[in-house]
Design a protein around this nucleic acid. Sequence first.
DNA 1: TTGTGCTTGTGCTCACAATCACAAAGTAAG
DNA 2: CTTACTTTGTGATTGTGAGCACAAGCACAA
Lengths: 204, 204
Amino acid sequence: MRYRKIPDESIRRLPVYLRGLLYFAETGAKGVSSEKLADFLHFNPAQIRKDFSYFGYFGIRGVGYDVNTLIKQTRNILKLGNKHKTALIGAGNLGKAILAYPGFGVYGFEILAVFDSDQAKIGKKISGRTVEDVSNLRTLKKRGISLGIVATPAPAAQQVADALVDAGITGILNFAPHHLIVPKKVKVITIDIAMELGRLPYYA
Amino acid sequence: MRYRKIPDESIRRLPVYLRGLLYFAETGAKGVSSEKLADFLHFNPAQIRKDFSYFGYFGIRGVGYDVNTLIKQTRNILKLGNKHKTALIGAGNLGKAILAYPGFGVYGFEILAVFDSDQAKIGKKISGRTVEDVSNLRTLKKRGISLGIVATPAPAAQQVADALVDAGITGILNFAPHHLIVPKKVKVITIDIAMELGRLPYYA
DNA sequence: TTGTGCTTGTGCTCACAATCACAAAGTAAG
DNA sequence: CTTACTTTGTGATTGTGAGCACAAGCACAA
């Protein structure tokens, strides 16, 4: 299995595995088998083993995985080891919710800056951060901020993405319902909430 | 192609196609080809044609698709034709953002009820809706509400899902980072925002 | 009615992902 | 040491989806 191409889908699952492992750590469990983890997360045990095996031998045959070791390794693989300085663009309702969302902390993301284009919002404080003018996005590089969260309306999203790329950002989490065009070196992950909801009635 | 199994991935793309078609309708375009739509949404034209072909012959060879007809058909396929009465559970920051999010209206979702377990929130008004006690979830059936949006913390999510199922709900949009166990007849779509962000540093 | 040009609809192939099933490798007991 | 038992790591198989490339079909012009 070593030396093989790592499926994108495996990467996608790793944060979920991490969440499960953190749960087991909380309960005080020292060890966990692929089967126990699979039961908790509702995955296939073989898939979990194979996903981890792309990155090394983390388990002991006949025993299972050490929870804390595997947490550390998973964090390593996902490069969640150190804090990630993040900027949020868009201080509307969605932006506010993102700021208040506790989930980001778990993975080591720190939202250090908030931007908006609305003069009425600029200068105001939200969750302890002062809203800045989007025209100051270029200061991100100096501040060591390397990730951006786009929570603007669709029409503004591409423009914001361009500015983020100019500011040297390496990854974007995009909540705007719009496909962002960026250089290959920049990774974009888009979450289109309404789109997900749009297919719900089909199954009902 | 008729009589073939419809890939889940095709269903997932339909709301995106709908968004693109609505854009073309706004610009006043009467017709659109799979290539033009693909350019706009950054898909493969053949994929768009194949996805629609699972549901019927909507285009005219040599001409393309009629925008308004295809919008109507797509809405039909996704069962977005009539309004969908929806309940929101969890009136925290995420819940508030969802209430204010304009995207739901596009697909015909009406959030008619908001629930929370926090006594301090119950009775208060949020975006024009009065927050109700979660113990009143059973009233949903009477009110004709058939979809639920779960925006609670993870530990409460399963309990809420159970109550929603009891109330006769047919679909759940789940924002809690937790796998929900429901009867097969109920469709769950989970959006784990932090999880998506969790894989961003890996690529950076 | 025949020819030209365009775009759909789809059979086929390739690529990738999920799962099975088993050898390998560990523990523990006698 | 040997046997029984457990769980990992992975080769092999099966399943699923994406995209190519072309026949089918329509419009329009002559």
